[in-house]
Amino acid sequence: MNHDAYDDDYIRRVLTDVKTIAVLGASPNAARPSHGVMKFLLSKGYSVFPVNPGQEGKQILGQPVYAKLADIPETIDMVDVFRAPENLPAVVDEVILMSPRPKVIWGQLSVRHDDAAAKAEAYGIEMVMDRCPAIEYPRLNIAS
């Protein structure tokens, strides 16, 4: 897939098909982008699972925090990645080992790693990179 530009229908389908989202790198700090995006996703009715090993066992926005993706006790449709781009290959490797696997890995603004994306796609996992669902959702006028 060409990750330089996404078709609006592709982004719309991803955001309407997924119901459960793991926010990797979720922060309890309201000033951090991951906190704001998590709050936005919750407000749109998604089930959101914050993942942050330093916050394990605590809560962010009323949701229990998990140390790693594999700790989440429910099936995850999408992993929203708030990590540096060089961490994306390890995230893809972690997602590949999950059963069932999430359908989508979403790299936040500036989170792009084309080799990691190619590997994920080879395993049937869709990728979105260098985008923010809290920007795309209202831009595409998706109904909650």
Score class of each variant (00 low, 15 high):
36 G>L: 11
128 V>C: 01
47 S>M: 14
78 M>H: 14
58 K>H: 15
70 A>R: 07
124 G>K: 03
75 T>D: 15
36 G>F: 12
144 S>I: 09
96 I>E: 01
89 P>M: 06
43 S>C: 12
41 L>P: 09
125 I>N: 10
120 A>L: 05
44 K>L: 07
73 P>G: 00
142 I>W: 09
69 L>E: 09
121 E>H: 12
41 L>R: 12
115 D>C: 01
54 G>F: 06
95 V>P: 02
117 A>E: 06
136 E>P: 06
43 S>E: 15
2 N>A: 03
24 L>W: 02
78 M>Y: 07
35 H>K: 00
27 S>M: 08
74 E>H: 14
46 Y>K: 12
23 V>C: 10
69 L>G: 01
17 D>Y: 04
36 G>N: 06
34 S>I: 06
99 S>A: 13
121 E>S: 09
102 P>A: 07
72 I>V: 07
15 L>S: 03
89 P>Y: 04
39 K>Y: 11
54 G>T: 02
93 D>R: 05
108 Q>H: 11
72 I>M: 08
90 A>F: 12
139 R>C: 08
13 R>I: 00
96 I>Y: 02
38 M>K: 12
78 M>P: 13
5 A>Y: 11
13 R>T: 14
90 A>G: 11
8 D>E: 13
141 N>I: 00
142 I>Y: 04
124 G>Y: 02
111 V>T: 05
131 R>N: 07
45 G>H: 13
90 A>Q: 13
21 I>W: 11
60 I>F: 11
43 S>R: 12
74 E>W: 08
110 S>R: 11
62 G>Q: 02
60 I>M: 02
113 H>T: 03
108 Q>F: 04
136 E>G: 07
125 I>M: 07
20 T>K: 15
119 K>P: 10
51 V>S: 03
130 D>T: 09
128 V>K: 08
10 Y>E: 09
14 V>R: 00
71 D>V: 08
125 I>H: 11
144 S>W: 12
101 R>A: 02
49 F>W: 15
1 M>I: 08
89 P>A: 02
70 A>F: 07
120 A>F: 00
41 L>G: 08
52 N>E: 00
57 G>A: 06
24 L>P: 03
96 I>F: 02
123 Y>A: 07
74 E>P: 01
119 K>F: 03
22 A>N: 09
43 S>N: 13
24 L>Q: 05
126 E>H: 13
80 D>K: 05
38 M>Y: 13
32 R>E: 13
46 Y>M: 05
144 S>R: 15
46 Y>G: 05
138 P>H: 11
112 R>T: 14
121 E>I: 11
121 E>F: 10
111 V>E: 00
2 N>D: 14
111 V>F: 05
18 V>L: 10
110 S>H: 12
80 D>R: 05
